[in-house]
Amino acid sequence: MASAPSKLYADDVSLVVVLVDTNPFFWSASSLSFSQFLSHVLAFLNAILTLNQLNQVVVIATGYNSCNYIFDSSSDLNQSFENGRMPVMCSSLLQKLEEFLIKDEQLSKEVPEGRIKSSLLSGSLSMALCYIQRVFRSGALHPHPRILCLQGSPDGPEQYVAIMNAIFSAQRSMVPIDSCYMGAQNSAFLQQASYITGGVHHKPQHLDGLFQYLMTIFATDLHSRSFLHLPKPVGVDFRASCFCHKNTIDMGYICSVCLSIFCKHHKKCSTCGSVFGQAQSEAASTSDKKRKTPET
């Protein structure tokens, strides 16, 4: 695929892109406070960087309205030294995070009420993939990349198409997406993302011990994964969202040409424009109202 094996470093050099959920709607209701969460994550980032001199960490904040890079170990660590007692990494990360949160909050005032309080996962996933693609293309040698989503907010069904596209492009470039879901309900998006790309999905039972979960499961480099017992997917939620109303559905109509999903019968596919035939006699379809229709 995109990466020729000869261009890789030794076995366990990794590039970890961490997507941190900063959605205030989730963190205000969570049992683990955001600052505690951050201290777990910072220690985890430190651990990754400690493991190998060539390891690289990139942090992307996933906000409610926007997302942005807040830390990149390849550039930020070389910057001038802070005189305070706080290490360079924490201070620069926290500073950028604060700037990001203020900006994100300003944007949210324009958003109407009533939508699901999800965060912009699709955006940060795409950013992560763009970053990885850039790494693939630059330089002769690059580390094994992987993405880790630390997500708490519920899925936003309106992002379904964008997220699925990101997942498939990650699969194509062989980038595993690990996901650690900290919210109440399990996330179908993240389960699917990890399942399709060969990453690990886990929902920690006790959030207080998040660090141990991160170390035990998500600090494992891709090389060692083939020797270790890691959580296996159990019952992945494969439900899709329809393209017309962004609802999560069990059964629906699929366009036979472009495989777009709809919850109701349409005359024309809104994605590719193919004209559908009549839904077979209305009487027949009342008995099993929702079904996949392979009619042209």
Binding site: D12, L51, M215, S224, F227, H229
Partner: peptide, 27 residues
């Protein structure tokens, strides 16, 4: 790599870990 992994995993465990349970981590 595996040794690094074990160190990280045991870093915050204060009680001794039996060899058996360590073996259970690997395939």
């Amino acid at each position: 790599p595996l040794a690094k992994k074990y160190v990280l995993q045991m870093l915050y465990i204060d009680v001794p870990v039996t060899a058996k349970s360590l073996e259970e981590w690997v395939l």
